[in-house]
């Protein structure tokens, strides 16, 4: 399970301090962790000498092709899984179907195009075989080049099985139809995703900002191009005008 060096390009532009700390360490640790046999142990030894200066570049060199992929290999689910019922009930073509780990065993994840999302979710909720009335979680994920993703975790309390529905949009056109009419639980989750990622949920009944102060709503925190502050970047004395006038 060793990994190529410089595998955190998404962290590098944010944190100038981090690569210097993390780059030598994986390099230093590779030899000791090469003891469990991995196929990449041989390729990692030359990478251990990669200087930290290279890690400070804007986009460090991508690892060689024989390194491990960044995304998990997609395994199709066995026949007669829940995805087929979803496809049948909603009449929607699913772009990708694969399995993801679950509390015990696996569950199915499907990818749909964003315009089909309300139809798929409504079908999951209303269809007899699926009966997925419980929206567990709605989150956004920022895959940088590949766009923004919205992930819905649905669950059926009666049938005890769930499904993960995903949809992907690009940065320029980050509009996803809202499912607040299908699942009232999604209302606040969508408002939060809008605050954090800038995904615009069209048709949302109440699109006010939820978590952010009203004057800071356009700077989406959870996107990867909004890094955390360095410790040295203090907020300065701009807020200090009122403090000095007070008497004890």
């Amino acid at each position: 399970m060793t990994l190529p060096d410089g595998q955190e390009p998404e962290a590098k532009p944010d944190d100038a301090g981090q690569p210097a700390a993390s780059a030598p360490e994986p390099g230093a640790e590779q030899p000791s962790e090469a003891a469990p046999s991995t196929p990449e142990a041989g390729t990692d030894a030359p990478k251990a000498e990669k200087p930290p200066a290279a890690a400070k570049a804007e986009r460090p060199a991508r690892p060689a092709k024989e390194a491990e992929p960044k995304t998990a290999p997609r395994v199709a689910p066995p026949a007669e899984s829940v995805n087929e019922a979803v496809a049948a009930a909603s009449g929607v073509t699913l772009s990708a179907v694969y399995i993801v780990p679950d509390w015990k065993g696996e569950s199915v994840a499907v990818e749909v195009s964003r315009d089909d999302v309300p139809a798929v979710l409504a079908a999951c909720r209303d269809d007899e075989r699926l009966d997925m009335k419980y929206l567990r979680c709605l989150s956004g994920v920022d895959w940088q080049e590949e766009g923004l993703e919205v992930v819905y975790h649905l669950y059926s309390l009666s049938k005890k099985r769930g499904i993960t529905v995903k949809t992907r949009v690009s940065y320029d056109d980050a509009n996803v139809p809202s499912v607040a009419s299908v699942y009232p639980a999604a209302e606040w989750h969508e408002r939060e995703a809008r605050d954090m990622f800038g995904i615009n949920f069209t048709g949302h009944p109440d699109p006010r900002p939820l978590l952010l102060p009203d004057d800071m709503i356009d700077h989406f925190p959870l996107r990867k191009d909004n890094p955390l502050q360095e410790i040295e970047e203090w907020q300065g004395d701009s807020l200090r005008e009122g403090a000095g006038e007070e008497e004890e």
Binding site: M1, V100, P101, A109, C137
Partner: peptide, 28 residues
């Protein structure tokens, strides 16, 4: 040094307030 393989998981426990879920996406 703990490293996870790339993938995602949704883990949930019964917290006193309800279902505490962690949706973890890892790029390895």
């Amino acid at each position: 040094r703990l490293r996870t393989p790339p993938g995602e998981v949704y883990a949930k426990v019964e917290a006193p307030r309800g279902e505490w879920g962690v949706y973890l996406v890892s790029k390895g």
